[in-house]
Write a protein that binds this DNA or RNA. Structure first.
Lengths: 249, 249
DNA sequence: TGGCTTTCTTGATTTGTGTCAATTTCTGTT
DNA sequence: AACAGAAATTGACACAAATCAAGAAAGCCA
């Protein structure tokens, strides 16, 4: 899921930025990082605010510093589908593209570290490693999107919920550098409605299935958002999922 | 959907290969094309044959020369979801990845032009334009996958069918360099079962909705596979889709 | 041409999820 | 502590799509 440092370059801090930008390759030497420093700026958003609308001109690329943002697609009649979840260090934006392809919305208070697109692209042209790093990240996202297609097209509501919970649990484990086995505890970063938009369900169905998983002892709930999974293997079985979980992370 | 030549480099023929490889950038001069020539070879498959299994080692990248291949994901119990459709000139394979992420299957007789992965990667390292071209293609695929997520998660069976038909019609138009308006005619390259796997439906539902669209005059059918659309705008309305159709192409 | 298989269509019935509506629980504010 | 608004739960019912089951049409090969 994530290669160790000696196998492949990983993200790097640039200047005073509190996060490691996954788009920036550790093999690229300080010259490039100093260039980044010059073209970067910060923007913050309140929970619920829209970062960009689908189709709008987007003259920057960015990393999430803190908070959570979602990528959503919407139909004219209001049906919406979440197509991606942005967590700290995640990258957003398309070098070589004028316009945003999705709505980007802050679901919590959000801080982003932005780079003006043109100079960023110029740097990419001069720095093959960054282009390759970005290609690799995009391929990861593509894999994640396609795994999600299987979920959306073929899984039952219960399996969908179990899949989402297991992904969030494993991402949490990864952040804390722990293995994702046995008993685990975490907070849901999403409302029931956001979960529904992610899974292609209604919020009522999400709620019902959460209750069912609780009733069946697959999860325990403390309040609405704090989840503990007594047995991760059981949960992953419920998810109907043999994958190692390279999901939308 | 596809930028004109003067805006961005497009695909190019290399040597005797009958197709334009979309992965190869026209800005890259003949040196690189000659290098490609040295590392390329052809493989052919019969309809129904598997090109690679998910998880298998895949030591090449390739372009489709002729025929159609599908990318599918499968669950242990056999539920399958198609996650991509490969048409002539489409690229498959992941520079920087060891293993295939999906099953690749020939749905018709298939000819592929393959490049051994290592030398291809080396060339990418030396030729920034190719890496950038590949990044752009991958971003296109990502957009397509995400548009498909909206379809899988939120569209009705009828809308799904209409979407698929309109995509195929528009791709056909693009290949023949015609506008996709008014009356259009094309052959379905997929069985009802493949359509179902693509759309997250059963083949019975696909059949029923095809009949319904026919009954309602949205499409005309001659045999099972030959479709004519009297009015493309009507079809796109049925698809519930305001997009300009940058789909899995 | 005739049989054979595969692909597709159509019907009857079941089931999972959506819809609508009422209530409860949580969270933040004064 | 009490209230207000948001978020979540639960129930009753409706409906779209799945499932089960025949049968028809198309393609293929002898």
């Amino acid at each position: 899921m994530m290669a160790p440092d000696d196998v492949h370059p990983v993200s790097l801090r640039c200047g005073d930025c509190p996060i490691r930008h996954r788009a920036v390759c550790a093999r690229c030497e300080s010259d490039e990082l100093e260039q980044l420093e010059e073209i970067k700026y910060y923007r913050s958003f309140e929970a619920g605010q829209t970062v960009v609308w689908s189709g709008d001109k987007m003259d920057f690329v960015a990393s999430v510093v803190s908070g959570i943002a979602t990528l959503t697609q919407t139909m004219e009649d209001g049906r919406t589908q979440m197509v991606g979840l942005l967590l700290p260090s995640d990258f957003v934006g398309r070098p070589g593209r004028e316009c945003a392809a999705y709505n980007v919305t802050a679901t919590t208070d959000l801080m982003m570290c932005c780079f003006r697109k043109k100079p960023f692209e110029d740097m990419m042209g001069r720095t093959p490693h960054i282009a390759q790093r970005l290609l690799e990240m995009t391929l990861d996202e593509l894999d994640a999107a396609r795994e999600w297609m299987l979920l959306l097209g073929r899984k039952t509501a219960r399996e969908k919920i179990a899949s989402l919970l297991s992904i969030i649990a494993r991402r949490d484990a990864a952040v804390q550098m722990r293995a994702a086995h046995g008993r685990m505890t975490f907070d849901l970063p999403l409302t029931r409605e956001a979960m529904a938009d992610y899974l292609g369900l209604t919020l009522e169905t999400v709620s019902r299935q959460m209750s069912a998983l609780k009733r069946d002892g697959v999860i325990e709930l403390e309040g609405k958002r704090h989840v503990t999974v007594p047995d991760m293997d059981r949960l992953m079985e419920e998810a109907g999922d043999d994958s190692d979980g390279g999901f939308l992370v």
